[in-house]
Design a protein around this nucleic acid. Structure first.
Length: 565
RNA sequence: CGGGGUAUAGCUCAGUCUGGUAGAGCGUUGCGUUUGGGACGCAAAAGUCGGGGGUUCGAAUCCCUCUGCCCCGACCA
């Protein structure tokens, strides 16, 4: 491509509110332009990168035996009512009406459509297993779109759905998809981790997220330094404490603690540390309030709490008025000692081995010191309730856990029969009986990958593309072509040769001053840069610089071809 | 949905408090000089000051209202 014939649209100034590197650089490089909140136009440059990602995803999906198709982005309300998600999906679902006042939504995902397709197309177990995929635009009306295409409302996604007669068959395809995803992200040149993920209300235990490691990531993940254990912090567990509860040494003592509400306050007042303090949270249960007790230095994991039988699907902190009515104290002064019998006391494993601890007094401005389980406070049950912290023992007993930030770019999920059941998607098995199909679903955020890659690979000058994602592999920069015909001719010749070698080449024939030209080429992250100049022509060499190397060096044309492989 | 901010030239922003001829930088156009790290000079084009209403002799500026966008929170691939 001759740059003079392309629409390169780099800019010097971008809005002050572009916060993260990928958003800033995509705007500066002119890869995207915002149309409205959460909606972006992909410029020719941006699209080249997006297509690179798409191609690799497509190749690996095909290799893994998936079959490409394309479903409508607009979907009828009826289908979503069948699955029960017209209401359940909430305001994230963009609902629209046609001229006949028929209701539709712009698809945020395609389980309903594919399951409808499957129930019409798949009749026999002999057609299974089968794995359909598409690469398509989705829309989710995010509460707060931000970070450019990282969390846009409209985005490009690869979604695949597999259909099976048995769980074993599903497990096989799931494993194949897991492998395919690993290949995709490896080929893209990204640092990533496959982490165990929470499966939410749907159940089942097979779900992995593929997380690109980056500080700007919106997800927190935990991984072991002694094994391949890795999990989203929502799901991450650790070994239970090795210590058993020490015997009570102190007497229970009621202490006046005016305005001492937070764990921090308590520590200051008693001159102790948070790991000696018991934190009691009251949440709404299925049947009245439930007390959740944690060590003061630990945080509640709401996903784990939501799975307790005492709770509805989610853990919701009780409002102040309810707490006051049930306990007679404001939040901050609640504790397990003397709590009404109707309130179950679920204690985190680490909190359960505390002895002589401090906890709320169930009356405003009082705490107990020297409190002990069993003697002073009952335990309904001990559970794993907390968020893992740096240094926790890995649950497989190998190594300890570390925390990192990640950007979720892929998700594989054993769906089970939820949608097939709801929509009545069945096939006849070898006994002639109707069987509800078992499904898996597998998503990749194609547009998000572009942002994630930049997040991971950039420097002061701009983007540093992995080879596989770069819009062009090599840029030929020409110094002063208009006044020095020999330089111009040499550059043209090199450009043709590179093209003949199969290298994707960008010829910067704009005739800009060198500084402006180099700045652009670095900003848009071309992996290899070659400069053709009068100086180099005289020496019979080319000046070569790799994007991620600090210095340029003189090389011959043969060396250049060898470098580009 | 709650709290806060913001809307002025193609872009990034001053000007609003204290009402009185619409500003800068970048970009764009023309001419000339320049050509190894975002060049320089001269000239030029470019704005219903987000929309509507009000106060006033006079509103970008004050008041009311609507809308968009951004930030924080709840939520989330």
């Amino acid at each position: 491509m001759r740059l003079s014939q392309f629409h390169l649209a780099t800019v010097k100034e971008i809005p002050a509110d572009a916060e993260i590197a990928s958003h800033r650089l995509m705007l500066r490089a002119g890869m995207i332009r915002k149309l409205a909140s959460g909606l972006y136009t992909w410029s020719p440059l941006g699209l080249r990168v997006l297509r690179k990602v798409e191609r690799i995803v497509r190749e690996e999906m095909d290799r893994a035996g998936a079959i490409e198709m394309l479903m409508p982005s607009v979907q009828p309300k009826e289908l979503w009512e069948e699955s029960g998600r017209w209401e359940k999906f909430g305001d994230q679902l963009l609902k629209i009406r046609d001229r006949k006042e028929q209701e539709f939504c712009y698809g945020p995902t395609h389980e309903e459509v594919i399951t409808d397709f499957a129930r019409n197309e798949l009749k026999s177990y002999k057609q299974l297993p089968v794995n359909f995929y598409q690469i398509q635009t989705k829309f989710r009306d995010e509460i707060r779109p931000r970070f450019g295409v990282m969390r846009a409302r409209e985005f490009l996604m690869k979604d695949a759905y597999s259909f099976h007669l048995t769980q074993e068959s599903l497990a096989e395809t799931y494993a194949a998809m897991y492998q395919a995803y690993t290949r995709i992200f490896t080929r893209l040149g990204l640092q990533f981790r496959a982490v165990q993920a929470d499966t939410g209300a749907i159940g089942g235990n097979a779900s992995h997220e593929f997380q690109v490691l980056a500080d700007a990531g919106e997800d927190a993940i935990a991984f072991s330094d002694g094994s391949d254990y890795a999990a989203n912090v929502e799901k991450a567990t650790s070994l239970p404490p090795v210590t058993t509860r020490p015997a009570a040494a102190a007497d229970l003592q009621r202490v006046d603690t005016p305005r001492v509400r937070t764990v921090e306050d308590v520590c200051r007042h008693f001159g102790t540390s948070p790991d000696r303090v018991l934190k009691t949270l009251l949440v709404r249960g299925r049947d009245g309030l439930v007390a959740l007790c944690l060590r003061g230095d630990h945080e509640l994991n709401e996903v784990k709490a939501g799975k307790l039988v005492e709770l509805p699907d989610e853990a919701v902190l009780a409002p102040e008025a309810e707490i006051l009515a049930a306990v007679g104290a404001h939040p901050g002064f609640v504790g397990p000692v003397g709590l009404p019998d109707a309130i179950p006391v679920i204690v985190d494993r680490d909190a359960a081995v505390l002895a002589d601890f401090i906890c709320g007094g169930n009356a405003d401005d009082t705490h107990y010191a020297g409190a002990n389980w069993e003697r002073d406070a009952r335990i309904t049950r001990v559970e794993d309730l907390r968020q893992v912290v740096e240094g926790d023992a890995s649950p497989d007993g190998k190594g300890s856990l570390h925390l990192a930030r990640g950007i979720e770019v892929g998700h594989v999920f054993q769906l089970g029969q939820k949608y097939a059941q709801a929509l009545g998607a069945t096939v006849v098995d070898d006994q002639g009986k109707n069987q509800v199909m078992t499904m898996g679903c597998y998503g990749i955020g194609v547009s998000r990958i572009v942002a994630a890659a930049i997040e991971q690979r950039h420097d002061e000058a701009g983007i540093v593309w992995p080879e596989a994602m770069a819009p062009w592999q090599v840029a030929v920069c020409v110094i002063n072509p208009k006044n020095v015909p020999a330089v111009n001719e040499a550059a043209e010749a090199l450009y043709r040769k590179l093209g003949a070698q199969g290298a994707e080449t960008l010829l910067d024939d704009r005739g800009l001053r060198p500084g402006a030209m180099f700045a652009d080429i670095e900003l848009i992250g071309i992996p290899h840069r070659v400069v053709v100049s009068e100086r180099g022509l005289a020496a019979g060499t080319l000046e070569y610089r790799k994007r991620d190397e600090a210095e340029a060096r003189a090389i011959t044309e043969e060396e250049l071809f060898a470098l580009l492989g």
